[in-house]
Amino acid sequence: MRVLVTGASGFVGGAVASALADRGDAVVGLGRRPDGWSHPGGRYVRRDLLAPIDDLGAFDAVVHAAALADDWAPLPEAMRVNRDGAVAIARALPQARLVHVSTASVYDARRPTVLGHEDAPLPTRYLSAYSASKAAAERALAGRAAAILRPHAVYGPGDTTLLPRVVEARRGPLLPLPGCGRALHTLTRIDTLVAATLRALDAPGDVDVVNVGDAPAVPLADVLQRVLAARGEPARILPLPVGAAMALATAAERRARRTGVRPRLTRYAVSQLGMERTLDLTRMRERLGLEPRPVDLAGAADW
């Protein structure tokens, strides 16, 4: 199978592209960085998502993993990359089987997500441009994508988002966490997301929207402390009441809008860290034939 993978220079796209090339598929990876994905069985092309791709030939399938994963990005830029980029790829390859990597951040961030189900109505207002633009991409691809995958808090070797943000949030030996980090979270190891993507590509028909994650759900603080300890950077949790953290984030965002300086804390971050974010994984089992695996922190010292 000839497969195009967007976002190949990133954490998720690179892992998916390598897995496809490892199993013998002919892979072309698109990315924004000059030193992006590399594999003996694949080809990397540096290109913007909205640029023409006619010169790359025909593809049997496309995995759209490219995204601007920034909760403080300007809304127009987030929409350009996350919504318009998805639409451009779908239009350029109308015959290819499309698997779109979305996010569980499309669920309502203003309240806990408790065993969030794929059929739950999505909100009309969001706390971040990232969530709003990813939801807009899902709406734009409805009826076109064979699968839309919704992972949450993707972790594992090569992580460029979750762990770096945790390390940045530390204050010496303390790790401030809204709600003390006791809220349950469905986490998604990169291996789980890669396996789900390959199953979605190989499925005989459309699988629609599917949550992707590990089970059982775990308290976020436990995972973060174990990962930091494995890296030789142990931290003690500094509990912050969610309400107080949200008030601080609101003030920080207002200040950031006045000064143009990125806030250290956002309402989106508070909502994601301090409230339950668990997913119903029934569809992953039934439509992809994939059993959730336990949260796996093996090798965390080298992430």
Rank of each mutant, 00 (worst) to 15 (best):
A221D: 14
V295H: 07
L228R: 04
T161I: 14
H117M: 14
L240W: 12
A8M: 10
L290W: 14
P292T: 09
G42T: 00
A140Q: 06
P204Y: 02
F11P: 01
E233N: 14
R46H: 09
T160I: 08
R2G: 03
R277Y: 04
V101F: 06
R83P: 00
A235P: 05
V295A: 14
A142G: 06
P263F: 08
A78S: 14
G13E: 03
A120W: 15
P204N: 04
L127W: 02
A51V: 08
A146C: 10
A235F: 04
A78V: 06
R254K: 13
Y126N: 12
D302K: 00
V210Y: 01
G181M: 01
L224G: 05
G10S: 13
V12Y: 10
V227E: 08
D48N: 08
G181R: 01
E138L: 12
D22W: 02
T113Q: 11
D159C: 11
A17H: 02
L175W: 05
V45S: 00
D202G: 01
M1S: 10
M284F: 01
H117C: 13
A249E: 02
T278A: 10
D296Q: 01
L127C: 09
Y107D: 00
P74F: 06
L228G: 07
E77T: 05
D222Y: 11
L149M: 06
V209L: 11
V207H: 04
D35N: 05
G156D: 00
L240Y: 03
D214L: 12
R255S: 08
V207A: 08
A169K: 14
Y155D: 06
L50W: 01
L177P: 05
A19H: 02
P234C: 09
I53C: 14
L288K: 11
W37K: 07
D191H: 00
P292W: 07
A229G: 10
H185E: 12
L187S: 06
G205Q: 09
E138T: 07
V3A: 13
E253I: 04
V45F: 03
C180H: 14
L177A: 12
I148M: 14
R285Q: 14
R2N: 04
D108F: 03
A26N: 11
V99L: 05
Y44D: 00
